[in-house]
């Protein structure tokens, strides 16, 4: 005996709703496992005592310290230079804008080692620009400055694209309303635009920072590898992996912990602003 039409519908709806939920759940859960299990494998591979021993080595501490300092500087500089870039790309219409927009994303496509070579043949001793710097006594390769430059080169697109998306999605009417109330552009940016795009900025900062923390190829190519001046944590991990997998894993865990803490803090900060 057929069900009344209404009942049939609702039964169908409930069924499809649950099957959709199940599908989403299964897909999402399998992805979390795909990402989570390899990371967990790193963390549980070595006993905690051994991890601690490897981490407390002076070279390891030095590398972690250098990573924190250089990525802080590179992220700060990325924001200082990247925010105007995002603003120009999101707001101004001019010929060649699409080209510039694509150009800014290029460093993410480039294999990092190639990015390093590009920096080397530009800022190196005999590079396009570097050759004018060396008579002034400035050489960039093998210095901490080069580490920061490599990080900015590779990581800044993540911030710029995120900031640009935030600016593009922003309803300009709020800003225009401020102008009708005679707000200066700077005031309008500080009080209207900035608070509205803050979540986008924070997520961009998080992405760029994390990318800079993990940077290896461009850094080792452009800046080289020397403990204390250019040996960041990923490079130390990479070199250690050649001979001593245990200490490589231990350092990776530190890198993971720092990145995880940083990204989580930014995320929580973002949610607090929203809520």
């Amino acid at each position: 005996m057929p069900l009344p039409l209404q009942k049939q519908f609702s039964a169908h709806n409930t069924w499809s709703r649950w099957s959709a939920r199940l599908l989403v759940g299964v897909l999402a859960a399998s992805f979390f496992l795909f990402i989570g299990i390899p990371l967990a494998a790193l963390v549980i591979r070595e006993p905690p005592a051994l991890l601690w021993l490897a981490i407390s080595q002076p070279e390891a501490l030095q590398a972690v310290q250098l990573s924190i300092i250089t990525t802080s500087i590179s992220t700060l500089l990325t924001v200082v230079f990247g925010l105007p870039v995002a603003y120009v790309l999101a707001r101004l219409r001019f010929p060649g804008r699409a080209v510039l927009e694509t150009l800014v994303t290029m460093p993410t496509v480039l294999p990092p080692v190639v990015a390093g070579v590009a920096l080397l043949i530009t800022f190196g001793r005999f590079g396009l620009l570097g050759r004018y710097l060396s008579p002034l006594g400035i050489t960039l390769p093998f210095t901490t400055v080069a580490v920061v430059m490599a990080q900015i080169f590779v990581a800044s697109p993540f911030f710029i694209n995120s900031a640009k998306a935030g600016l593009e999605q922003l309803d300009r009417r709020y800003e225009l309303a401020a102008y009708t109330l005679r707000a200066s552009p700077l005031y309008a940016f500080r009080r209207i635009v900035f608070p509205l795009i803050r979540p986008a900025l924070l997520s961009g900062i998080g992405l760029a920072w994390a990318r800079a923390l993990g940077e290896l190829g461009a850094t080792i190519t452009f800046a080289g590898n020397f403990p204390g001046t250019t040996e960041t944590t990923p490079i130390a991990v990479y070199i250690a992996a050649e001979s001593n997998l245990e200490s490589a894993v231990a350092l990776s865990v530190v890198l993971l912990a720092i990145s995880f803490g940083l990204l989580l803090a930014l995320r929580l900060g973002r949610n607090r602003i929203r809520g």
Binding site: L120, I220, G224
Partner: peptide
């Protein structure tokens, strides 16, 4: 006088070849 410790021989060739 060592300025960098590379992870492979080809990286040394590259940096010397570029004059760095």
């Amino acid at each position: 006088n060592v300025v960098s410790l590379e992870d492979n021989v080809k990286a040394v060739v590259q940096k010397v070849q570029l004059g760095e």
